[in-house]
């Protein structure tokens, strides 16, 4: 007995909808979840690289951002004995410094330069009764961030930094597709991507490049 199947109205479009739904389903939710989780993992690295990047970018204005130059002036309790040795002893005692100077230089009758380390010096002015203390002190966070950013430690950080770079590439790529938008990449998203690409290209062209 022959059977005839008569297509019911609307059955074709229901099949097509189901196929579209199947196509839509897997990629975007996965992308969004991965983008979010990779974003979480990237927060610590991003803070380190961004803060260090800003400070290193402005190295010409700020000097070495890993350190701050300290310049303090102290009043000198004038010693009776103004020989080089006596003044040196008195100054170190007054400032509570228990370091043997690497150099002591009598620049004049009234001036004495005491070098404790390359980064720590005292200029004594007997005429004015002052001690000018010059030191270079590390900035805790910036020094660590720059040490990591500039990969001064090498070793395993090279691989971790490579991993972070791959994460950034993934974040950039997944960001393109995770929210469809009305026109996809043909709309505003496309314009922004083009602007992001054009800015460095134009900069190189207009500045004459390296």
């Amino acid at each position: 007995m022959a059977t005839t199947i008569t297509p019911t109205p609307g059955a074709k479009s229901a099949t097509a909808d189901a196929a579209r739904a199947r196509k839509k389903l897997p990629l975007r939710p996965w992308l969004r979840a991965l983008h979010r989780d990779v974003g979480y993992l990237a927060v610590g690295f991003t803070v380190i690289y961004a803060v260090s990047g800003l400070s290193v970018n402005h190295i010409a204005d700020l000097g070495d951002p890993s350190f701050k130059d300290v310049n303090r002036t102290h009043q000198l309790a004038r010693p009776r004995d103004t020989s080089t040795e006596a003044v040196t002893r008195a100054v170190l005692a007054q400032l509570g410094i228990d370091v043997r100077p690497s150099d002591v230089y009598r620049a004049s009758d009234t001036e004495l330069d005491i070098t404790l380390t390359e980064e720590h010096r005292l200029h004594v002015d007997l005429a004015r009764g002052t001690i000018q203390e010059e030191a270079r002190e590390p900035r805790f966070f910036l020094r660590l961030a720059n040490w990591l950013h500039l990969n001064r430690g090498k070793k395993a950080w090279t691989y971790l930094a490579d991993g972070y770079a791959v994460f950034l590439l993934f974040l950039a790529a997944s960001g393109l597709f995770m929210i469809p938008g009305r026109k996809g990449l043909l709309g505003r998203g496309g314009l922004f991507v083009a602007a992001g690409v054009l800015v460095p290209v134009l900069y190189v062209v207009l500045s004459g490049g390296p």
């Binding site: 204005d61 700020l62 230089y105 070098t115």
Partner: peptide
């Protein structure tokens, strides 16, 4: 003046 970096001398004043 703003410090602008560079590599300071390591010669001690007495030998400068």
């Amino acid at each position: 003046l703003r410090p602008m970096g560079g590599e300071p001398s390591d010669t001690p004043p007495s030998r400068y």
